[in-house]
């Protein structure tokens, strides 16, 4: 799906958008500092690890650690896409700090539980870094939309796994999942608020991009995390995440927050399809 011809490009010097994104960043940062900062070495109850949890839960923790470990790629490539917009670029820098704690906490858990050796984890890190994550979409608008769905999906999965960890009597892992989830939903809300601005500026184009991103959406670990399909199968079984959950807990809630109806989105898809057919016929 090509960008709508009427799409307003992201250009430096777009004063109104710069001002709004900066205000949004200030609010986000201030709230994060007041309510959400945590230390992965001091604020996690590692003494409450249940070293006897099932292997499947360890695989879940390790898989999250793997996905979060591509942070250097997420940050370097993601921040460059939004570079022209101070507020969103500075959000990305803060996002990087917050996300960095997720993998550290999970790594510490895996090591301190004794379920993974340091050698195994550093070997895994080396293997992970042999592959680079690439941007799934090329524009700032599409990547911001992607952030909405990806952060919401990650939040939902973390919340479900928190419940599993609690059921398995591992208060430490439950705490890590809870703190990570809290960060993810805050990230999702920022992205959603940016998309609301984009919808105000160019509703048709943004709707087409929302449809495009939803159609081509994949979680970031696909194709890069070793044994990803097998890991996801375990995560889905552990957390009971399937298509129904994606629609109920991710897709429709994001649309609702953006005040976009399913019918509007479908109309955007139809319009785009017609336009492509017309262009192909010319």
């Amino acid at each position: 799906m090509s960008p709508s011809p009427s799409a307003r490009p992201c250009v430096p010097g777009d004063t109104a958008r710069q001002a709004r994104l900066y205000e949004m960043y200030k609010t986000f940062f201030d709230k994060a500092e007041e309510e959400r900062r945590w230390n992965p070495f001091r604020d996690i109850p590692y003494e409450k690890i249940n070293a006897g949890v099932p292997d499947s839960l360890i695989v879940v923790a390790e898989t999250f650690c793997c996905v979060e470990s591509y942070l250097p790629d997420y940050v370097s490539k993601g921040i460059n896409v939004v570079r022209p917009y101070f507020g969103q670029a500075w959000f990305s820098a803060n996002w990087a700090y917050e996300e960095s704690k997720h993998s550290v906490a999970l790594l510490e858990y895996l090591l301190r539980s004794g379920r993974r050796t340091p050698e195994a984890m550093w070997d895994l890190q080396t293997r992970l870094m042999r592959v680079e994550w690439e941007l799934p979409f090329e524009t700032a608008r599409r990547m911001t939309i992607y952030g909405c769905f990806q952060e919401m999906a990650t939040f939902v999965i973390y919340v479900k796994q928190e419940q599993t960890a609690k059921t398995q009597g591992d208060e430490c892992l439950a705490t890590i999942f809870r703190l990570n989830a809290r960060d993810e939903i805050a990230h999702c809300r920022f992205y959603e608020d940016v998309v609301k601005v984009l919808l105000e500026e160019d509703r048709e184009g943004t709707l087409r991009d929302i449809a495009h991103v939803a159609k081509h959406f994949q979680m970031p670990g696909v194709g890069i995390v070793p044994d990803y399909d097998a890991r996801v199968k375990i995560m889905r079984e552990e957390g009971k995440v399937d298509r129904a959950v994606f629609l109920q807990k991710v897709f429709f809630p994001v649309l609702k927050y953006l005040e976009v109806t399913r019918q509007e989105l479908q109309q955007a898809v139809l319009s785009d399809r017609e336009e492509r057919r017309t262009h192909a016929a010319e």
Partner: peptide
């Protein structure tokens, strides 16, 4: 998932009905 929603949307238009999102 999105393909299914597109199919549902098209059937809604053809049959002049509206299914609840939930």
């Amino acid at each position: 998932s999105l393909g299914m929603l597109e199919i549902v949307g098209s059937m809604e238009r053809q049959l002049k009905i509206q299914l609840p999102d939930e």
